[in-house]
């Protein structure tokens, strides 16, 4: 005799046992990312997002501030993608690059923002905190409104991957031409590369998703 209570307990037990495996499996799924708040607005043409990632570049990060005040540019790269709930394919995506740099001639900070393949826009700030806030707070069009299905039952969220000073991977083209000891060295370096467990993609990487939203019918 199996009652509904027994079935529920079994289901709960099964979920409890499977949850660690689910966490591992869903690690790459956008919906499994931590959630942060963001503001959404829309016009007839585009859907805009306003989101802040203050932990990407903090004034308490001494190394980052040292580099910034030393006049070295700091690159902040944002990749944002709009997902319909339950889907793993983005409806729209945008790539934003922000560069913050101290200008010792004009005694101010330059914040240069490039959205997609567009032209860069430059803003200047006398205070470092203002420059950091401007570079870590984005207000961009993330999708065309026409690309987003409307209605209360059409739930979306935005996945944000923010990187500080990302490391560009280079493709080596000299591997095939090497001979003798150079070729062995090439093979050995690849062999060693197989045992490097952590390959940092950037100085800092923050991944999250926004709270769900929907675009009402017009």
């Amino acid at each position: 005799m199996t009652g509904p209570g027994a079935l529920g307990r079994r289901r709960m037990l099964g979920l409890a046992l499977a949850s660690p495996a689910l966490v591992v499996l869903l690690g790459a799924v956008p919906e499994a990312l931590p959630r942060r708040k963001a503001k959404f607005s829309y016009t007839s043409r585009e859907l805009k997002i306003r989101v802040a990632v203050p932990d990407l570049l903090r004034t308490t990060d001494k190394q980052a501030m040292k580099m910034l005040d030393g006049g070295y540019p700091t690159r902040l790269v944002y990749d944002m993608a709009v997902y319909a709930k339950g889907s793993r394919t983005p409806s729209a995506a945008v790539h934003v690059e922000v560069s913050v740099q101290w200008d010792p001639w004009n005694q101010d900070y330059i914040v240069q923002t490039t959205i997609g393949a567009g032209s860069p826009t430059v803003r200047r700030y006398a205070l470092r905190a203002d420059a950091i806030k401007a570079s870590t707070t984005l207000s961009v069009a993330v999708a065309k409104t026409s690309d987003i299905p409307r209605g209360e039952d059409q739930i979306h969220f935005v996945q944000v991957i923010a990187q500080r000073n990302p490391i560009e991977a280079k493709s080596s083209g000299a591997g095939g031409a090497a001979r003798g000891q150079d070729r062995d060295l090439e093979v050995f370096s690849r062999w060693v590369g197989m045992f490097v467990r952590t390959r940092p993609k950037a100085e800092k990487v923050i991944e999250f998703r926004t709270h769900p939203f929907y675009v009402p019918h017009g």
């Binding site: 490391i167 991977a169 280079k170 493709s171 080596s172 591997g175 090439e186 050995f188 370096s189 690849r190 062999w191 060693v192 590369g193 197989m194 045992f195 490097v196 467990r197 952590t198 390959r199 940092p200």
Partner: peptide, 29 residues
């Protein structure tokens, strides 16, 4: 340090990490 993966793509890794990888690679070899 620049390291190459099996596909020949280069990426950066910390020196300590590379040193451990070299020792692991030599150990297995």
């Amino acid at each position: 340090v620049e390291v190459k993966d099996a596909g020949g793509e280069q990426s950066m890794a910390e020196r300590d990490e590379v040193r451990q990888a070299v020792i692991a690679a030599l150990g297995i070899a």
